[in-house]
Nucleic acid binder design. Structure first.
Lengths: 218, 218
DNA sequence: TATCATGCAAACTGGTTGGTATGTTGTTGC
DNA sequence: GCAACAACATACCAACCAGTTTGCATGATA
């Protein structure tokens, strides 16, 4: 029983908006997880950053894992769509290599982002081996990403702007690996310059994918 | 006070060899950290895997962090030396590109390794942003790795077997980024095939570094 | 106006965690 | 053969942590 004899004080009730509460929780949880990793992110710390109480959290999410799954499906997946899927679909009529270069250059590169690394990689690195549910959700995102890049490359092959000797899916994975790899290096160095150098090299490599006769200067 | 009236039972004393005990602790701790990450690796779990007691651990290491530092400096650094520094130094007289291809192909690729990812990346990913002491030690390893690859490339440039238009240090970082990137992808997929494909592409890229006129078929 | 489900708030709990205090044993120097 | 130190073993602890229980306010509904 909770405080049987004494009246409990309650904080002044705030306007009720469950969906808003849920979103606030997701955001704060994402930030915590982004910084400390899923396992080390504390429920209490997340709550402290939101002015939401534990009761509310466990009303919206069954468990810490459920919260983690929601972070991936709603926050991380959305990030990827924002940075890759939509930009590539918007620039459908451009040369795909130019489009890819543009997207790569547009990856956030503020000190905050570089030092924090890629949210997708952070989670994959930590959880893929430990929890199949995490892994599958992360794989969906990787797959959507790769499929989008592959589609752009294939289109370029049809147009004649991209070399025909490369396999779009493999090349897409290669590009993703390069990006994630540099993201890891830059995060370890905690240095934006490492990232800039990475982008430069990746852009150079992307240019080498142009079909002969379609070379431009970069 | 500990059990003031009752005699404590003690396990049968085992042969004393402090250095051996230390190494056993390091190994077990590395395994735990490799699997669960540093923050989530439990002291008690590590001890359970070793038949060593907490007293012994805290006799050899001041704190969990100190244990982590030792893991990096002694176990992870040694792994990198084994896989990169020594092989590259042993094959000094070979074509550096051939040597690099050999080393890349020799990276462990058993299911265990692929599913666990790269120990260096695992730790860097988790700790670089959180603990400067971890970060610096990991950076030393990355740096030694990069320097070794760069040196091989430079030697190739002098020999005329490697393209002169590339900057050895940058290209070395690029290679490392590719490897780590694929390591992340393969770990997330928990699939050896992803890794094999990565190696294939990396080897292809390495071949493209050969100086014109020195091209071989791969 | 009474009722009831929704959306929380806050105290509480049981297990885990890194770390410590202190006792005990093997070994080494004298 | 004994003191002193190195190398542990064991019990213990405070803090923390995910999750639970119960209470309560509020708006929708009857």
């Amino acid at each position: 029983m909770l405080l049987p004899r004494q009246r409990r004080k309650r904080r002044a009730p705030r306007p009720r908006d469950p969906e808003r509460t849920r979103q606030r929780l997701l955001r704060a949880a994402f930030n915590e997880v982004y910084r400390y990793g899923f396992q080390s992110a504390g429920i209490d710390t997340i709550l402290a950053a939101t002015n939401v109480t534990k009761g509310a959290l466990y009303y919206h999410f069954e468990s810490k894992e459920a919260l983690g799954y929601a972070i991936i499906e709603e926050v991380v997946a959305e990030l990827t769509r924002d940075r890759w899927v939509r930009p590539l679909q918007r620039s459908k009529d451009k040369d795909p290599i130019d489009a890819l270069i543009g997207v790569v250059r547009a990856i956030p590169h503020q000190p905050r982002d570089v030092k924090g690394g890629c949210p997708l990689v952070n989670l994959a690195q930590e959880m893929s081996q430990l929890d199949e549910q995490f892994r599958k959700r992360l794989e969906n995102i990787f797959h959507a990403w790769q499929a989008e890049v592959a589609m752009a490359l294939r289109k370029g092959q049809d147009q004649g702007t991209v070399r025909r000797d490369l396999v779009p899916e493999e090349t897409a994975s290669f590009l993703i690996a390069m990006i994630e790899g540099y993201e890891v290096l830059a995060k370890n160095a905690q240095d934006v310059k490492v990232w800039s150098m990475g982008i430069k090299n990746i852009v150079g490599w992307l240019s080498s994918l142009r079909a002969p006769g379609n070379r431009k200067r970069t």
